[in-house]
Design a protein around this nucleic acid. Structure first.
Lengths: 152, 152
DNA sequence: TAAGATAAGTGGTTAATAGTGGGTTAAATT
DNA sequence: AATTTAACCCACTATTAACCACTTATCTTA
């Protein structure tokens, strides 16, 4: 099952003194009536924050409910995935406050780079993103593997 | 069948001189009218306390009745899960008193970290949680197994 | 192309709520 | 009956969320 969301593009905005970040209009406009203004911010796997529209998140969450807490691995996994997830709404101006824990995690200072990545939105410290850009080149071998699964 | 509850997020609160703990508003708001203010606190499998809204607990109890007491494992498991379960309500300010036995079990002192984990809420000693965090890394093998069951 | 109109991004103020502390009364226990 | 425990109520403070206002950019239309 594929997502209704196809976020793309990159934007550089600023975070204000109250830790508010504006969601770029092109991305915000995609939010469906059903999801209107509601989304989940959480830790990305890389050093950034991830935003999922609530319906996307519910899909992920649904999978997680299948895991029994009798298994230790499951408990750790669930805890660490859910504890950083904040359900938020953006205000009438299209902004939301990024929780302090995520500001710390992603080393966000004053400016943020916001990237659309299909079903999610990433929030980066611009400097960090630049660094990751340079060091995280995809090697040829990995490209070969990708090519077998994605045809672009 | 999946739960109506989808607790997420992490909060650090304090426990007061009367052993009262506040349930964070975002979590408390999820309590349904039917369950209003009623829940079960019991021992977590890890060194923490677990909170289930009463309807969730009833559901779990139902599952537990399926376990035959002919099995020794089942007997021990049932005993340890049921004997420490306290049915409580939170007061008009949204607090409840954590029973002394659970304070001892989870080594709670002054501050508590409260985590939403889908159908339950966990109460931790912040220091203990940090320790568990570091020691309980999920190994690659386990991740592999998880990946076959959960697609996120 | 210029001017007006609309929307987007940013900043600040006010009002509501959440978290915390303590006290008083009712209940329970010894 | 006295002491302790638990439920209930009231109050303060800090944080958060809702509201308002301004500037800059973009789009539209003459």
């Amino acid at each position: 099952m594929s997502s209704q969301y196809t976020f793309t593009g990159q934007f550089t905005f600023s975070i204000d003194s109250k830790n508010r970040i504006n969601i770029p209009a092109p991305l915000r406009k995609q939010f469906s009536k059903k999801d209107k203004k509601t989304f989940v911010v959480t830790r990305g796997i890389d050093q950034c924050a991830w935003i999922y529209p609530i319906s996307e998140w519910n899909f992920i969450q649904n999978e997680l409910t299948q895991l029994s807490s009798l298994s230790k691995t499951n408990r750790i996994f669930l805890r660490n995935h859910l504890r950083h997830a904040n359900i938020l709404k953006f205000d009438s101006q299209g902004r939301f406050v990024l929780p302090q824990s995520l500001i710390n995690y992603s080393s966000i200072d004053k400016d943020v780079t916001i990237i659309g990545v299909l079903n999610k939105i990433e929030i980066w410290n611009p400097n960090l993103l630049r660094k990751v850009d340079q060091s995280d080149e995809i090697d040829d071998q990995s490209y070969e593997e990708l090519s077998e699964r994605v045809n672009i």
